[in-house]
């Protein structure tokens, strides 16, 4: 990582901590440097920053968020943050225009030794529902690399910090809860696994204390 990118990473995490005093709850796994796929709920562009910020530095260096190329390539600032600072795996979400297969891009990143942060809802949740239905990508990825743990991660309160359409964040305490890992069974169908993964994330959300 270049010096400028390091500086930006430090400033972004410091700001995130100032606003959210974010805290990790390791409920189902330990913060050890093992390759993992973290899958989290998605309410804002700050989600992966919070998840990234609570990882210990050694894990952080090997963890790459998976994000939509349409958003993160739009301006040079976003490109710098997405590519240089967070080393994101940028995928094209539009089926019609895309050249690369997103699942293959993610599998390649895993083969390169990285852990991934994915948001299986596919888009930001702006409804009152705690979690949108999952897209099937998480199943295909799990099938491709069945020996890597999938860890549900619940990011609480960030939707209240910056509701859609606002640009001034409200300082509120956020937590990032890591739940028990799961893997796809060899005979598991797509629908069964996707439901199991979604339920695992929902039950991780229930361990969060308070009204979060």
């Amino acid at each position: 990582m270049s010096f400028l990118a390091r500086l930006a990473a430090g400033a972004i995490t410091l700001f995130a901590r100032f606003i959210t005093a974010v805290r990790a709850v390791w409920d189902g796994i330990e913060p050890v440097p093992r390759q993992r796929i973290y899958f989290a709920n998605h309410v804002s562009h700050g989600d992966f920053i919070l998840l990234w910020a609570v990882l210990p530095p050694r894990l952080r260096e090997q963890t790459r968020p998976v994000a939509g190329a349409d958003y993160w390539l739009k301006s040079s600032i976003r490109r710098f943050i997405g590519r240089d600072v967070f080393n994101a795996v940028l995928i094209d979400r539009d089926r019609k225009t895309r050249a690369d297969d997103p699942i293959k891009q993610m599998a390649d990143a895993l083969d390169g030794g990285a852990s991934l942060i994915i948001f299986p809802e596919g888009t930001r949740n702006e409804t009152d529902n705690p979690l949108l239905p999952f897209k099937s990508g998480i199943f295909h990825l799990a099938k491709q690399r069945p020996d890597i743990d999938l860890v549900p991660v619940w990011i609480a309160n960030l939707n209240r910090v910056m509701p859609k359409g606002e640009f001034v964040p409200i300082p509120l305490i956020c937590t990032v809860t890591f739940g028990a890992p799961l893997r796809v069974e060899s005979d598991e169908t797509k629908d069964v696994f996707v439901k199991r993964a979604r339920d695992a994330l929902l039950s991780t959300s229930e361990t969060v204390e308070g009204n979060a």
Partner: peptide, 20 residues
């Protein structure tokens, strides 16, 4: 302290500017 306090309140979208 304010950050902790507001976290536990029932404030919502409509209070965004008041809280800011």
């Amino acid at each position: 302290a304010l950050r902790e306090f507001v976290t536990l309140t029932d404030t919502r979208r409509g209070d965004h500017w008041a809280l800011a």
